[in-house]
Simulated scan of single mutants.
Amino acid sequence: MTVLVHAVVSLGMLVVVPLGLTLLPTRTTSTRWWFAFAIPGALALWLPRGPVSITFASTYLAGTLVLITLAGRHLLQHKAIRPREIALYTALATPSIAALALVAERSSYELFGFSLTVLTLTVAHFHFAGFAAALIAYLVSDRPGTTTTVAAISVPLGTGIVLLGFFVGDAVELAGAAVLTAGMWLVGWNLWRRSRQAGRATAALLISSASVLVVTMVLALIWALGHVIGTPYLPLEWMVATHGLANAVGFALCGVLAWRRLMEGVR
């Protein structure tokens, strides 16, 4: 399981996040600076726990803090906290949560009492349910409408409630999973609507990104519900191999690739 989680997180660090940064209004002329932080971060995943991996993980944490400064600069320039901006700022802030968990896990330190396994999964969760989900919720909300506005609010809200549930309890985490699922399904609906106006290759990416959410978010709900009322749910290893992998590749990677094509005018 650990190897698969590390592979998924590496995909997030080295592909999904830098591609995503090119789609945001905070982008610079190049995202090459990101790799100065992300490559050490990815290496930290594969090295044994110890001083070297801690140093590399801390380097990655520094890079994620740059994203927070970009969010702050955007806020000062635009002085707007509308639903769409909330999704944008969530996308830019959540990698730092992942990076902090990575530093703790590489240090063999059970941050806030969480096991090293939970911290490992937190690194993955906040790259995809955090950055990628909020990023795509932001992108689909470029067209005003009820579903896009609700998606832009509910994805960050659900992510925040899930995070709170880590500290408060499984019932709160279930509530967060429900809110996040609703938001993700709205994101998927809007991706599917975009696919009807896109060329064949772009439409295939958009439909793939939307379709996997139907199954993966049901799995997330079943997982959260099972921890509250004891109903059956998939073992952790299977959740990583299904929910985690499908969201990383099917939703996040296909979604950012599709949007890159849309922004470049490629049909």
Rank of each mutant, 00 (worst) to 15 (best):
A224L: 07
F56Y: 12
R194F: 13
L100I: 14
T64F: 06
L121M: 13
W192C: 05
G63R: 05
R106P: 00
A99R: 00
T146A: 08
T242A: 13
A99N: 06
A220S: 14
Y138T: 01
S141Y: 06
W33K: 02
T117A: 11
L11I: 12
F37R: 07
L21I: 04
R261K: 12
V118N: 09
R260W: 13
C254R: 03
Q77C: 07
V17S: 00
G158I: 00
A91D: 04
A204E: 04
W34L: 01
S141V: 04
T146E: 05
H78T: 15
T22G: 13
G160P: 03
F166V: 02
L70R: 15
V187I: 11
L116W: 01
P232T: 03
N247G: 07
R196V: 10
L236Y: 12
A36T: 09
S141H: 04
Y233S: 14
A137E: 07
G50H: 10
A175C: 06
A248M: 05
E110D: 12
G20M: 07
W46H: 13
T181M: 10
A7H: 02
G183C: 10
M239E: 11
A151Q: 03
T181I: 08
S53Y: 10
A132G: 03
T64S: 12
A151K: 03
I229A: 09
P40F: 10
R106E: 00
L61F: 14
R193L: 14
I136V: 12
